[in-house]
Design a protein around this nucleic acid. Sequence first.
DNA 1: CTTTTGTAGTTAGCCGGCTAACTACAATGA
DNA 2: TCATTGTAGTTAGCCGGCTAACTACAAAAG
Lengths: 178, 178
Amino acid sequence: MTTNYDFNDRPDAARISLVAGSTGEAEVAELFLNFQWAYREMQRQYDQVLANSGLSESKFIILMFLAQAPQQQLAPSVIADKLGATRATVSKLLKGMVAQAWVARVASPTDKRSTLIQLTAAGQQTVTAFLPHNFAAVQTIMAPLSPAEIDQLNGLLQKINQGTHNLNLELERNQHAK
Amino acid sequence: MTTNYDFNDRPDAARISLVAGSTGEAEVAELFLNFQWAYREMQRQYDQVLANSGLSESKFIILMFLAQAPQQQLAPSVIADKLGATRATVSKLLKGMVAQAWVARVASPTDKRSTLIQLTAAGQQTVTAFLPHNFAAVQTIMAPLSPAEIDQLNGLLQKINQGTHNLNLELERNQHAK
DNA sequence: CTTTTGTAGTTAGCCGGCTAACTACAATGA
DNA sequence: TCATTGTAGTTAGCCGGCTAACTACAAAAG
């Protein structure tokens, strides 16, 4: 059964789009809100899957990086770069992961500033136990999409990336002009 | 000029999808990551637009709600419902907005538990001054999409909503089974 | 070889989410 | 009427982002 999963169960934020003026603006504003809504609901459920295993998304990804790394160890700065987060954020995450004993700190032999993060057996076990749940969740979320629709959506997301990039350029131009 | 805005400028998180097993799984995992990426980059830029006016998205939406409300006042609980956030979160946001003098607290005449939130002239001015920037940003983000693509994307997002909903059902079933 | 510049990591403090616990009051029911 | 149950709002405390400031060390430049 394919019921309608439209955006009607959502709070009142959609009303904002009614403020739009000329033709076409309303549709664009509505799409923007739908995009935010779809992501946020999806992420809420996905976070719940992670939380059921005591994980957060970032901590899971860090465990994955370590599991795939040579000697299963990486420097915090490398983790930050791969994750796309700041060192400060990673530092805080690692603090928690050390406390959970999923990882351990090892002094770097080559650089006295650096400490390597080493995956522990417990961490290894946690991540491998979680992997099936992760892929099941992702499959479930994307299951309603046919292969053709997957391609379509990838293409449309790239267009949003382009729009984001254009907005970024505008902002930087305004910054400079100031 | 329409350059390629693919997902190559992104950190290494995409490598995760290589762990997928059977055919089709990898494509789905990749789409999942692309979806997250597109949203997060978009949101980062949009938040920047808001921050340039000293606003956050939630505070802006609250100001919009108040501007449209009768007497330009609403109870915090009503704001929370419309916004789709908890009362605790709204309480914290309002605290900041009162400090900024965008809103003021007024005792409810009918319910001694409740305080109404009243939009001030300064708040009114802030939100009306920001509105054009908001719509310009949204238009820029979505500009690369044709009207037909907007329809397409709305449809695909609804399919993701359906997948999210299915995941939710699975989780609740597991909760009950336990 | 010393000075400057850059890099690695942590900490403090802010933001905006959340849950849980608590107070004050309203509304319902025995 | 009085007891119970429910609702409005705040606070405390946690999480995961961020920037800015700081220490320690490495690397490049003089």
